[in-house]
């Protein structure tokens, strides 16, 4: 499985896929995309990398801390639900929105996006953790 072509492809695909996943995550609110798909994409980046270089190498990557991301993701998702409460909403997970503007460029941010970020991290973490473990078992 460990061919040079796959190695080069995987190494270059990883940052591309990660950035793409972030784009997909952000645009999910208005256009096709969203945390779930983005999470799968980000996870894939690592899975492909592991496929090319082996799990032990992939595990040394800086962001390869799936268990942390899973917990963190659920934490963010929960926290995003609390923000509405703190702003005096009646129930948990009431959306709160603001728009950040930098000159001509404006960024619409809201708790649902934060929630989606949580979904993203959890899904990616889950995927990486499970597949890495399965791959380790293989060797």
């Amino acid at each position: 499985m460990k061919t040079e072509i796959l190695k080069i492809a995987a190494a270059h695909l990883k940052p591309f896929l990660l950035i793409l996943s972030l784009v997909v995550l952000y645009r999910g609110h208005n256009e096709p995309g969203g945390g779930f798909i983005a999470g799968l994409l980000a996870g894939m980046a690592y899975v492909i990398y592991a496929g090319a270089f082996g799990v032990s190498k992939a595990k040394q990557l800086r962001l390869a801390k799936p268990m942390f991301f899973m917990g963190f993701g659920i934490g963010i998702a929960l926290f995003s639900g609390m923000i509405g409460l703190m702003n005096g909403a009646d129930s948990i997970f009431t959306g709160v929105w603001t728009t950040l503007t930098f000159g001509d460029f404006s960024l619409k941010l809201g708790t649902p996006l934060l929630f989606d970020l949580g979904v993203y991290l959890t899904v990616a973490g889950m995927l990486v953790k499970v597949i890495f473990t399965v791959m380790e078992e293989d060797v």
Binding site: H29, P32, G34, P112
Partner: peptide
Amino acid sequence: AFGENIVN
């Protein structure tokens, strides 16, 4: 909810 992607 200020979103156009209904599924999301």
